[in-house]
């Protein structure tokens, strides 16, 4: 209990729970709506060559996350592309990038990269589930004179309600254990402000060789993920009984 107490104090001091919270927020309210929206547009055949666009959005998923982390930290660094674009837009050639060194702003690139990597997964999951919806229902609604907006809100969203909840929970549990991306993008800096639970555990166990505190952190992670697993089971059962 002593270790857990120490851990709790450390967490309070570093304020790093904020980051965990932001990562979860981006996952649930960024990746999922974006993935859902894009999947819906592809599903309604709004674009030609949707196979190509789908492949593009999904592409980052097959690249190693550490490569993505290093690549984007270079994109946002002073030698990268992003500062040049900002220089061109603001017409200020002396602009230099300090985003990665600032406590508050370091979240912006991280959130962006999280979207860049994981939106594709949700696109694929939602598209697969959209294609399972009985097309007769939509056709019937169209015959009754429903507009596209009405069909979306009254038919599509309720049908996929369970999937939305499930993917949200998966997104939360996935972001709790994400390690590679932030480890390479920031290494926990500036001043350990961008530490995730997993990186925190790694630093304690394998940099400072303090297995006790490391184990305490991983115990916290296990408890959190067990809670989430129980939640997933519960939602799944609810959805299955709803469908039957």
């Amino acid at each position: 209990m002593d270790r857990v107490g120490k851990l709790y104090k450390n967490i309070q001091r570093s304020g790093f729970l904020v980051l965990n919270f932001i990562v979860i927020f981006v996952s649930v309210f960024g990746q999922i709506p974006l993935g859902f929206g894009l999947a819906y547009l592809i599903y309604r055949k709004s674009v030609k060559g949707s196979g190509f666009f789908q492949a593009m959005v999904f592409l980052p998923m097959v690249i190693s996350t550490i490569i993505i982390g290093i690549l984007w930290s270079k994109m946002f660094s002073p030698i990268g592309v992003v500062p040049r674009i900002i220089q061109a837009i603001t017409n200020n050639p002396n602009y230099s990038m300090t985003i990665m060194n600032s406590k508050q702003l370091a979240m912006i690139p991280i959130g962006f990269v999280l979207l860049w990597v994981y939106t594709g997964t949700y696109l694929i999951i939602f598209l697969a589930n959209l294609q399972n919806i009985d097309p007769n229902i939509i056709e019937a609604a169209q015959i009754d004179g429903a507009t596209d907006g009405q069909i979306f809100i009254k038919i599509i969203v309720p049908q996929l309600y369970g999937v939305i909840v499930l993917t949200s929970i998966l997104a939360i549990s996935g972001s709790l254990r994400s390690f590679d991306l932030l480890f390479t993008m920031t290494g926990g800096g500036p001043a350990y402000y961008t530490n995730l639970l997993a990186i925190y555990m790694y630093n304690y166990s394998f940099i400072h060789y303090n297995y006790g505190v490391g184990s305490a952190i991983s115990t916290v992670m296990v408890i959190l993920s067990i809670v989430l697993v129980i939640l997933v089971r519960f939602v799944r059962r609810k959805v299955e009984t709803m469908g039957a």
Partner: peptide
């Protein structure tokens, strides 16, 4: 399927 890798990292390492 339910176990996170970090949870077993330290015991596994030892």
């Amino acid at each position: 399927l339910l176990i996170t890798i970090q949870a077993i990292l330290i015991p596994l390492f030892i």
